[in-house]
């Protein structure tokens, strides 16, 4: 039982990161119906930028670790948001009215481009965040030893998600985003600047990915230029699992995927872990073709 609980928390910790990245996927998809395969690489850029800023500015020394990391995170979020904005302008906007899959290929091209750009800038060897930035304290919860940082990371993920939910459902901008997601033409007629909404979405989504990148770097320490591909794929799976385009769905999907992976590895087989989670995904989709929280789309007639 104790081991089960431990594995559950392991799964939730990973799931929190998947969920955070999945949010970016789902937001972009909701508005543009585009699977942004470059999203995982924006996450990687966040991790690398975080490391560069951390070592070059030395903020944690000058204004203290907590404030330093906060300022750092904000800077990374802004920078990655700008990259996302540029990406949309250059690689996706010209394809707005063409077949949907053309934009997917452009996204794959962007993913290859970013991955190799990261390799050329920061090198092919894995880089390491400085040790000892975060204290190694564990908390005993129901008999399981949980590192305090994992709990913090989970809490931050959930807070960010709640913030995003608030933004999209309770504010004017959020209403505009949702309106553009439902029907761009109608939104335009209602006086919403759809292009601005799309640019905004393309800043928020990658910015969340960048934040996840910094968190991953701080917690796991090691970062490398190929890591975004795997995280991106997992996050895409999570977004689909929850019903793509749906923000609470991405959160649920991410957490569920993390837990399924962890329990599958713990009680069935580690080597078959990813196969198990894909199998679960397929089974869920056979029963619920639009994911757990996705809306059923009526056939157009």
């Amino acid at each position: 039982m104790e081991e089960f609980f431990q594995q559950l928390t392991n799964g939730l910790a990973v799931g929190g990161i998947y969920a955070l990245i999945a949010l970016g996927y789902t937001m972009v998809y909701g508005v543009l119906k585009l699977i942004n395969f470059a999203h995982g690489d924006l996450f990687t850029i966040g991790a690398f930028l975080g490391l560069t800023l951390l070592t070059s500015l030395g903020l944690t020394d000058s204004i203290g670790p907590v404030a330093g990391l906060l300022v750092l995170a904000v800077m990374v979020v802004i920078l990655v948001g700008v990259v996302g904005f540029l990406l949309e302008r250059i690689a996706y906007r010209p394809l707005r009215s063409s077949p949907r899959l053309s934009a997917v290929v452009s996204a794959l091209g962007a993913s290859i481009f970013f991955q190799n750009a990261i390799m050329l800038i920061w090198g092919a060897r894995p880089l390491v965040y400085p040790h000892g930035l975060l204290p190694n304290v564990t908390v005993n919860v129901f008999g399981a030893e949980l590192p305090l940082i994992r709990i913090l990371m989970f809490v931050i993920s959930v807070l960010l998600m709640c913030g995003l939910y608030y933004l999209t459902h309770k504010t004017r901008i959020g209403t505009a985003i949702r309106a553009a997601a439902i029907d761009q033409g109608a939104a335009k007629l209602m006086g919403i600047d759809v292009n601005r909404v799309i640019s905004l979405v393309f800043m928020i989504g990658p910015a969340l990915g960048g934040a996840a990148g910094v968190m991953v770097g701080l917690y796991y320490g090691q970062i490398n230029f190929t890591m975004g591909w795997l995280y991106g794929l997992k996050a895409f799976t999570a977004a689909i699992l929850g019903g793509i385009g749906n923000i609470p769905g991405a959160m649920l999907g991410g957490l569920l995927l993390g837990v399924v992976e962890s329990l599958g590895a713990a009680y069935i087989s580690i080597a078959w872990k990813d196969a198990i989670s894909f199998l679960v995904l397929i089974l869920i989709l056979i029963v619920r073709p639009t994911g757990l929280l996705g809306e059923r789309v009526a056939d157009k007639v």
Binding site: Q7, G11, Y220, A266, I270, K273
Partner: peptide, 20 residues
Amino acid sequence: FDALNPGEQDYNTILTKIKG
């Protein structure tokens, strides 16, 4: 005796399992 997935970052699950 088992295998992990190279390229991932979180091996807590595997360590917890081995610890058992």
